[in-house]
Design a binder for these strands. Structure first.
Lengths: 252, 252
DNA sequence: AATGGGTGTTGCACATGTTGCAATCACATC
DNA sequence: GATGTGATTGCAACATGTGCAACACCCATT
């Protein structure tokens, strides 16, 4: 909508891939060097872009600070956190909290497993959307049309033989999740890791976030993990109630 | 330098404080509503801004993803990480890695304490710059003029009675740190928490990052923590060597 | 139903801010 | 000291962004 801003913002994902010098930025942006320079300067003044000693540009510090402030202002996260910790203390496994936003699902909180074997994930990192239990929960709550539209847009990487193979299978899985009110990921992302998850709902019943417990096979089998389901659901419901109470919908 | 981009970017910190509606954004930006709308739309298209159900805007998901990608591409971080983990396994305490950038010091990596009592901190969060050991290390390496300039610009909040009280004291401390090649924070940020830190240097000898070990009084006394200093310094030196090797300076 | 205040949104004429060029500078390397 | 690469600046042309005013919309009142 605004050409200049559009160009400037296009620089960010470009630099996210690694540092680049003025010429590279200009070329990949399709503009004259002088134009790129001015845009970079503006980004620099706002701290979103940093200039290293060798003159190349990379993403700057304020970006982290912003992302940090943003995530800390999310109501759900704040309310959920103590409950996630408690759950972690009860079962010892890694606990995740995730939200859906514009075709992406991302972790906004995490409590690390107390076992030495941990799974890799990081707050802010986009979730493997086609297989993760939290992703299924969040997408399952969308309208029929939205689910279809999102499912069509996605890629279906076969992380493991048990990954969701395509849109049809995914939609079927979402329907099942919607029906039963909880979700699993049994080795769909990494062969040896299983998850059980449950949705967190706002006062209007819509899913605002999803949480899950993950553990590797070497610690507990999938069956054992499933016995935690009631506990996970209870925790999610507690958070839902607390969230609904403090956050009465202003509209709708 | 670019008015439009400048205005658009000014929206981000504004939204970081909490969601705002179109009118508020326009007012705080000092522009017409229609202008603010177009800027917000552009930010929205790039995923930096999200529109919630009640029409208000808040920071968007892509911001996290960007910050995430950026931090993962930092060379020092990648090289340092395994060493930080090893150090953590040897001593059990929380280990931090931080860099300096444009008047800010921020954590770029962290390995959690294995003790139940943990200190609060988070990757991406700006460090308490006047008291943290890592901040002292990073600032101590700046030129005399830069140190003076930064020291003057800072605030000196008295987190505890042992916080650095002002610019003069801070500069003196920096000189000492520069001299001795390591730094501490003994209860300067939180009464009961102590840190010891050491610098990580590039091939040209300049400090590129700093690391520290932190532990609360209840776990180890300050004296006991100081006995870890040789280990911390050794780890920092190892990282420095590895970093210098893989990262020969292109210029200067 | 009708009214009114509060939003967010669109179309448009004007001029401001942005663009690309070409020239210049900074700084290596040969 | 010449040569090449990349960053930077000044400037004139004009594409872009701007504010205005009108409109659409939602909700609360009467």
């Amino acid at each position: 909508m605004s050409q200049t801003v559009d160009r400037a913002l296009s620089i960010l994902p470009l630099l996210a891939q690694g540092p680049a010098d003025l010429g590279q930025v200009a070329e990949r942006l399709g503009v004259h060097k002088s134009t790129a320079l001015r845009l970079l300067r503006t980004l620099h003044e706002h701290g979103l872009v940093y200039r290293q000693q060798d003159q190349r540009y990379r993403l700057g510090a304020r970006l982290f600070a912003l992302a940090q402030e943003a995530v800390e202002n999310l109501d759900v996260r704040e309310i959920a956190h103590p409950h996630l910790v408690e759950l972690n203390q009860n079962c010892g496994h890694t606990v995740h909290l995730a939200v859906y936003e514009e075709n992406e699902v991302l972790y906004i909180d995490k409590v690390e497993s107390r076992y030495p074997v941990r799974m890799y994930s990081r707050i802010g990192k986009p979730v493997a959307i086609t297989v993760a239990a939290v992703a299924k929960l969040l997408l399952a709550d969308l309208s029929e049309a939205e689910r279809r539209s999102v499912a069509d847009k996605l890629d279906y990487p076969m992380y493991t033989p048990r990954s969701t193979p395509g849109a049809a299978a995914f939609l079927k899985e979402l329907a099942a999740v919607r029906e039963q009110g909880w979700a699993t990921d049994l080795g769909g992302h990494e062969e040896s890791i299983n998850c059980v998850g449950a949705p967190i709902r706002g006062a209007d019943g819509r899913v605002v976030a999803a949480m899950s417990v993950s553990a590797p096979n070497v610690v507990v089998t999938a069956e054992e993990l499933l016995t935690l389901l009631p506990l996970v659901r209870r925790t999610a419901d507690t958070i839902s109630r607390e969230y609904s109470g403090s956050n009465r919908p202003k509209k709708v």
